[in-house]
Design a protein around this nucleic acid. Structure first.
Lengths: 207, 207, 207, 207
DNA sequence: CATGAATGAGGTTTCATTCAT
DNA sequence: AATGAATGAAACCTCATTCAT
C-alpha cells in the first residue's frame, strides 16, 4: 500500500500550506525557506526534496488556480464563438462566471498571494506578471467576442476589460483583507455586478 | 549664505531620485543601500546622514505626494459639507479632481512605487497600507457626503469607492507599464471617466 | 548457486566503475554519492551496503593497482638481492618492467585518479600520499640494490628515483590528457626511455 | 598620510597569507572562507571586500609568481632569438635560470599551491591548468630556439621539455615536503642538473 | 560633513550519512 | 537486500548598519 507515498503527499501539502501562509504574511522575498521548513515541521534540507527552489514552490502555488482559470476562459471563448442564440451566449457567460467564482473561493489564499506579489520587483512578481499577460490576452479575446455578439456595448473592449479586472481585483482584495464596514461577500458581489453592468450598459437582469 | 544647505538639498534630492528609480526597478526589498548610494554618487555611510533607515527613505518618497493628497480630500470634504448649492458642490468636486490629477502627474513614479509595494509583505508594504487606510477613510467620507448631497446615486458608497479606486489603479498601472494596444493617456482617461460615470449614474457632462 | 553473489559482484563493479569515472571527471571532493549511485543505477542508500564511506570507495579504487604494484617491486627486490649474475639481474629488471607496464595499462584510469588526487588537500589526497610513501620506500630500496649490483651509475639513488618518477608521471599525465602535438604513446615511451637511460648512463640497448 | 591604506594593505596580506596556508594544508575545495577569515582575524563579510570570490583569491596567489615567470621565459626567448654567439646564448640561459630560481625561492608556498591543485577537478585545478598551457607553450618555444642554436641535442623538444618539467616539479615538490633522506637543496639541484644535462647530452660544465 | 572599511546575521543550497519501510 | 526520504551541518555570499578616520 502507498503508505510511503501517502506520507509524502501529506508532507508536500504541509510545505505548500506553510509556504502559502508565510508568503502571504511576510511576502515572498522575506519568507525564508528556514521558516517554511520549520512551519511544515521538516528539516531545511527536506524542503529541497519537494521543490528545487523557493520560486518553484511559489509558481506551483499560483498555478493551482491559474491554469484552471485560463482553461475556463478559453473554453468559454470557444463555446461563445460558435453559439447561435443570445440566450445560449448568456448561458455560457453565466456558467463561466460561476466557474470563476467557484475557483476563486476554493483558492482564496493562493489568489490573494498572486495579487500581492504581482507588482513586486523580484522573481515572484515576474512570475505572476508572465501569467497576467496570458490572462489579459484571454480576457481581451473574450470581451471582443462579447462585443461582436452584441452582448456588450463598450466602445473600447481593451479599456473595459482593464477597468473591470481592476475593480474586481480591488474588491476581491478588500474582502480578503477582512476590511470592516463591508457587507457580506454575496451582497457585495451582486452590488458590484449591478454597478459594473451599468458601466457596460448591460440591460439589468442579465447580469 | 545657504551655500552649505544648498548642497545638502541637492544631495538629498540625488538620494531620493536614486532611491525612487531603484525601488521601482528592483523592488524595495532587493534594492540595496549600496546601489542607491552609488547611483547618487555618495558613499554608503553618507546615506545615513540623510536618512536613518532604508524604510524612512521609502516613506519620505511616498509622503511627498500622499500628504498633499490627503489634504486635498479633507479640504474638499470640509468645503462640501458647508456648500449651499449644487453648482457650488460640483465646482468643489471639479477643483478637487483637478488637484488630484495634477498631483498624480507631478509624482508619477512615486505614486507607482506606492502601488507596486502596497501589497508586498515587508516593511514597505506595511508602510503603504497604513497610509492606504487613511486614504480609504477619507475617500469614504467624501463619497458619503456626495451621496448626502445627491451628487451620486450609488446605493453603497463604500463599494462604489472601492470599485473606482481599483479600476483607476489598474488603469494607471497599465498606462505606466507602457502596455501596448492602449490609446494615448488622455483618450483613455476620458473613456474611463465616461464608463465610470455610467457606473455611478452620473449625468454625462458632469464628469 | 552463486546467483546472489554474482549479482552483488556486478553491482559492486558498477559502483566502482561509476566512482572511478566521476572521481576523475569532477574530482573526489566534488563527486557526490548521489551522482555515483545514479550512475551505477542504484539507490543512494544501497551504496552504503557496499562501501561504508566515500573515502573507502576511493581507497578501494586505488588499491586495485597499488597493492599489486608494491608486490611487484618487493618481489623484484627480493629476487635481485639473491641474483648471481649480471644477466640474471637484468632479466629480473626486465620482468619487473613488463609487469609494471602491464599493470599500468590495465588500470589506466585508476592510476590517473591517484595521480590527480595525490596533491589534493582532502582525505583522498592524504590516502594517496600514505601509499606514495610506501612506494617511494620500495623504489628507493630497489634503486639501491641496483646500484650495489653495478646496474646503475647514478651517484645519488634517491635523487635519481625522484627524477625518474617525476618525469614518467608527467609524461603519463600528458598522454592521458590527450595533449596535442605529441607522438603516439609507443614512440614517446621509447624516446623517453632513451633519454632517461642517458641520464643514468645506461648502455643503450639495455633499456 | 595613507594610514587607512596601510591598514588595508596589511589586511589584504593577512588574507593572502591565511588563504595560502589554508589552501595548502586543506586543499582549495575544503578550505572555507570562514576559516580564512578567522585565520586572518577578520569577519566573514570582510573577506568579500578584498576578493569577490574564493577563486579570485586563489588566482591572485598563483599569479603573484606566474606572471613574472612567463615574463622571464618570454624575455629569454626574445633575447635568445637575436643572440649572436654561443657564449651570449649560454649567458642568457644562465640569467634566466637564476631568475627562475630566485622567483621560485621567493614564492615557495605559492608555487607549491599551484602544483598541488594543478590536477584537481574543481575550479582551482582548471585555473592552474589554464596557466599551465601558457607555460608549456612558452617552455616549448624556448626549447625549440635552444635546439636551433645547437645548444641542445634532444631530437624531440616537446618530449624533452615535458620530461624536464616533470622531473623538476617532482624534485621541487619533494624538497618542499621536507622529505627526509634528501641532501640540502643546493646539492640536490646541482646533482639534478648534472643528470638532466646528461639526458640532453649537454657537455658537462655548461650547466 | 563625508567616507568606506568592517561587521555578522541571515539567505539559499548541497551533501554525506542514517534509518524506517 | 534495497530503497529513498529525512536530516542538519556547513558552504558561499549579500546586506543594512556602525564607526574610526
Amino acid at each position: 500500500m502507498g503508505r510511503r507515498e501517502e506520507k509524502k503527499r501529506q508532507k508536500r501539502e504541509a510545505i505548500e500550506s506553510a509556504g502559502l501562509e508565510l508568503f502571504l504574511s511576510q511576502g515572498y522575498e522575506r519568507a525564508s525557506i528556514e521558516q517554511i521548513a520549520a512551519s511544515a515541521s521538516i528539516a531545511r534540507g527536506t524542503f529541497y526534496l519537494y521543490y528545487p527552489t523557493k520560486l518553484e514552490l511559489f509558481e506551483a502555488l499560483v498555478d493551482v488556480w491559474f491554469e484552471p482559470l485560463l482553461k475556463l476562459l478559453d473554453e468559454a471563448e470557444a463555446r461563445l464563438a460558435i453559439s447561435h442564440t443570445r440566450e445560449e451566449s448568456l448561458a455560457i457567460y453565466g456558467e463561466m462566471t460561476l466557474g470563476l467564482a467557484t475557483l476563486g473561493l476554493n483558492h482564496e489564499s493562493a489568489v490573494e498571494l498572486a495579487f500581492r506579489e504581482s507588482r513586486g520587483g523580484g522573481e515572484a512578481g515576474a512570475a505572476v506578471r508572465t501569467r497576467e499577460l496570458r490572462l489579459q490576452a484571454a480576457s481581451l479575446r473574450l470581451t471582443e467576442v462579447g462585443a461582436e455578439r452584441g452582448l456588450i456595448t463598450a466602445p473600447n473592449p481593451r479599456l473595459a476589460s482593464l477597468l473591470i479586472l481592476g475593480a474586481i481585483e480591488r474588491l476581491f482584495f478588500e474582502v480578503l483583507s477582512d476590511a470592516e464596514g463591508l457587507d457580506d461577500p454575496l451582497t457585495l458581489a451582486s452590488g458590484a455586478l449591478a454597478m459594473l453592468g451599468n458601466m457596460l450598459d448591460l440591460p439589468t437582469g442579465i447580469v
